[in-house]
Design a protein around this nucleic acid. Structure first.
Lengths: 243, 243
DNA sequence: AAGAGTATACTGTATATACAACCTTATACA
DNA sequence: TGTATAAGGTTGTATATACAGTATACTCTT
């Protein structure tokens, strides 16, 4: 909700907010270009750009001569949904515990500025913690958070509620990016996870967006011997069978 | 190159053709909006739309005051989709090659019978091959196929068409299962991929179903240094924006 | 009552124009 | 020589206008 954002972005956010809050459900007709022209006091080309880009992003579908409508979201399962590891472990009937290694405000490095897609940037919230299943470390979480998107992030106690759980509640995520690679852990990662020297790790790098802005960048490191990522889903119909 | 396609689409196709044919390599500057205006005899807004959409699709990157440039394609593969690695590599403007290590009919082991969910079983088709990008091995494919689902599988020449491409054409897949883990390669895997001793690998295990029957079980091994799996998508709507 | 024609609303595309912000380069000046 | 300024090219945004194509609703005619 930046004051200096372009007009077409304001229109996009206005429509997105109605969709994400559930006010406009799938199938509902959204304002036509001319109606947006009147209500926002903009030109038709600006309204057209907003609707056209939301259509390209899959939020809307347009029919010439009829109107623009909220699109039905397809059954989407993912290799990796945004799930809370604490619930995941407890769903297996195991004991979840965690240890916060560090929680501080930091200065963004050049690489992080790049990842956060910022022009001018200063601070970032940073949390590093270890998640354990039955007392054994299974995930090392290294997370940076955009302060302007989650101003209260640093006041949380992450031994009670994981950063994922907090962010899921606080901010509606509308886009996700995942990169998965294999890597040998660094010395400090090896120590924090309590693994032996030659053991490889699965590294899941995740970025999430809300309303076009990067909310958080997380690097999740799993010891290969203790974790694998799993997904199963139907391609054609609805029901997603992610487990 | 349809005659009746809109102007901005023609401009997009013109630029895409230069990128995909390798005439314009990553980093090269593409024509500015004003240059496109002159060479195509169009208005600047039309040129702007073409360049803006190609940028949104990840093909270009733009710098105000400087110009528009061909973007470096990331060496990563989609997690969600069933994609043909040959097309994937060629889409990056690189050279695809492959080597079939073995192609034979085998007797199913107990573990494979389990994976194929069979009660009574005898034979399986088996293919092992190496996929290369610019002559460097990037994926080791180890695939078993249900003969009753793809009876002509063994008569294919997989140096011409990958097993994935053949199966995609021959059989409609309606369910997918993925498991991703990190592992150290075996000695033979290490040799086939041409990697050094301590290098970990990303192992993607995939099963696909058609009409309730397992079609194929594939184990895809990627050297950690040469490949990462990637996915990006909107959470509420739309098909995956994977590239 | 049925069909044809018309009016209207909506999207899709294209142009011309304008201004702002940004970057590079050349020029003038101290 | 170093610095400030100006000029020009580049992208980003916004407007006003125009015309074409499509779907729906209405009216008139038969």
């Amino acid at each position: 909700m930046n004051e200096i954002s372009p007009l077409y972005v304001k229109v996009k956010n206005h429509i997105l907010a109605h969709i994400q809050s559930g006010v406009w459900v799938p199938g509902v007709r959204v304002p036509s270009e001319n109606e947006l022209v009147e209500s926002f006091g903009i030109s038709r080309m600006t309204a057209n750009r907003a609707l056209r880009e939301l259509t390209a992003d899959g939020y809307l579908s347009r029919v010439p001569g009829v109107g623009t409508f909220v699109k039905e979201p397809p059954a989407r399962s993912s290799l990796m949904e945004l799930r809370n590891i604490a619930e995941e472990i407890e769903a297996r009937g195991h004991r979840y515990s965690s240890r916060v290694v560090s929680q501080a405000e930091t200065v963004a490095s050049a690489a992080l500025v790049e990842e956060f897609e910022w022009k001018t940037v200063s601070r970032l919230y940073h949390v590093q913690m270890v998640h354990e299943e039955n007392g054994v470390p299974v995930q090392l979480e290294d997370r940076f958070v955009n302060p302007s998107m989650a101003p209260d992030f640093m006041r949380q106690d992450f031994s009670l509620k994981t950063p994922t759980a907090y962010l899921l509640e606080a901010i509606p995520v509308d886009e996700l990016e995942h990169t998965v690679e294999a890597a040998m852990p660094s010395a400090s990662q090896k120590d924090l996870l309590g693994i032996t020297l030659g053991e490889p790790c699965l590294v899941l790098h995740r970025r999430s967006w809300s309303r076009g802005q990067v909310v958080t960048v997380a690097t999740l490191t799993y010891p290969a011997s203790r974790y694998a990522l799993y997904s199963r889903y139907k391609t054609s119909p609805k029901g997603a069978l992610t487990q």
